[in-house]
Simulated assay, not measured.
Amino acid sequence: MNHEFIEALDELEKDRGIDKEILIDTIEQALLTAYKKNFGSAQNVRVEFDRERGDVKVFSQRVVVDESDLYDTFLEIELADAREISPNYELGDIIENEVTPMDFGRIAAQTAKQVVVQRIREAEREIVYNEFMDKENEIVTGEVARVNKNIVHVNLGRIEAIMTPQDQIPGETYRAGQKIKVYILEVKKTNKGPQIVVSRSHPGLVKRLFEFEVPEIFEGIVQVKSISREAGSRTKMAVKSIDEKIDPIGACVGPKGSRVKNIVDELGDEKIDIIKYSDDPAEFICAALSPSKVVKVDINEEEKSALVVVPDYQLSLAIGKEGQNARLAAKLTNWKIDIKSESQAGLEPQETNTDAE
């Protein structure tokens, strides 16, 4: 190793942000391990890396002890012998002798190179981890790299993310080279570097897509209060405006439905119900069961449950196919909802109104 190596460390510090002193400390520890591996014990050895010239020296260390306390001449030296070297030595002092092996320069160079390469790899992993940690719960655009055993590998530029089957939209197909928007679900450290899990089925994807499409949401004028989603089929989203002049549903739908259409297209024609949020549970539950009409809502605050009565002819609409409408409404409001028809509730049924469906 030489002065050029020191210059290379300076460049690493400047270009990659790898602290030179930390790197040198790591190199010294690695050299100590290399010495022990190649030349025996390193119990009393210190390795010194010259910060200016890049030279490496190895020193043995012995403690100055009284003759009666001498136990191991490898680790200790008598006071009388120490004073033959220098009359200034006292008990407890450390005497160092250079013991750099002739072949140690080659070993040192190889070891230092391995340390630097490893540290660069770790630094790059740390940079990638920090970059994507800041993007957790955000949307990024990636490219499908490959599909292996139902797991989609998505190229995000500096790293590949994985999308497990449960994070995929049911029925959606993925092919290599396809550009897709994904929601960064989790970023975690592993022994092999950062692992990023992305999703297209998470409700957060819908929320972020609306933030991109609807300026009022991005600016905080319209708030997304809750979302319930069955990916690939249907989503319900409750919104509220902090400005009375702005219709939150209209803002989300956009001119001629353009805003919501862009999101529906991105999600493969997934149906999206946008409803107005209310602090009144009964009113919120009525809206959540849209498009069904509601005749009556009885609220049980303690159990956080609601009995909802709907017209006989709209019972199936309120419940939805395989119970989906009722299930999504319950998730959206966080209330347990029991739906009954007017006949089941003992009320006089309304006249059938086919236009209501």
Score class of each variant (00 low, 15 high):
E84D: 14
E84T: 08
S86C: 07
S86R: 11
S86W: 02
P87N: 07
P87E: 04
P87R: 04
N88F: 15
Y89I: 03
E90H: 10
L91I: 06
G92M: 12
G92F: 12
G92W: 12
G92L: 10
G92V: 10
I94W: 07
I94M: 14
I95L: 15
E96M: 09
E96Y: 12
E96T: 13
E98A: 09
V99Q: 14
T100R: 11
T100C: 08
P101C: 12
M102A: 15
M102R: 15
D103S: 13
D103L: 12
F104G: 05
F104Y: 06
R106H: 15
R106L: 13
R106N: 13
I107F: 14
A108K: 12
A108R: 11
Q110G: 15
T111I: 04
T111N: 07
A112W: 10
K113I: 13
Q114D: 14
V115K: 13
V116D: 13
V116G: 14
V117S: 10
V117Y: 13
V117W: 04
V117N: 12
R119Q: 10
I120P: 03
R121H: 11
R121F: 06
E122P: 13
E122G: 11
E122T: 10
E122L: 10
A123C: 08
E124D: 13
R125E: 15
E126G: 02
E126R: 07
I127S: 12
I127G: 01
V128K: 01
V128F: 02
V128H: 02
V128C: 02
V128Y: 01
Y129V: 02
Y129W: 09
N130Y: 05
N130Q: 15
N130T: 12
E131C: 02
E131L: 05
M133S: 15
D134E: 12
D134T: 04
D134Q: 11
K135L: 06
K135D: 00
K135N: 01
K135V: 00
E136D: 08
N137I: 00
E138M: 06
E138H: 06
E138C: 02
E138R: 09
I139N: 02
I139M: 03
V140F: 09
T141W: 00
T141G: 05
G142F: 01
E143Y: 04
E143Q: 07
E143G: 01
A145M: 08
A145N: 14
A145C: 00
R146V: 01
R146G: 03
N148C: 04
N148L: 14
K149G: 00
K149L: 06
N150W: 01
I151R: 09
I151S: 05
V152M: 03
V152T: 07
V152A: 02
H153Q: 04
H153T: 01
H153G: 00
V154T: 06
V154F: 04
N155I: 00
N155P: 03
N155G: 03
R158W: 01
R158G: 04
R158K: 14
R158M: 02
I159E: 00
I159F: 00
E160T: 08
E160D: 14
E160P: 08
A161S: 11
M163R: 05
M163K: 06
T164Y: 11
P165N: 08
P165V: 03
Q166A: 02
D167C: 03
D167W: 07
D167H: 15
Q168D: 11
Q168E: 13
Q168N: 10
Q168L: 10
Q168K: 15
Q168Y: 09
I169K: 03
I169F: 05
P170M: 08
G171P: 07
G171C: 06
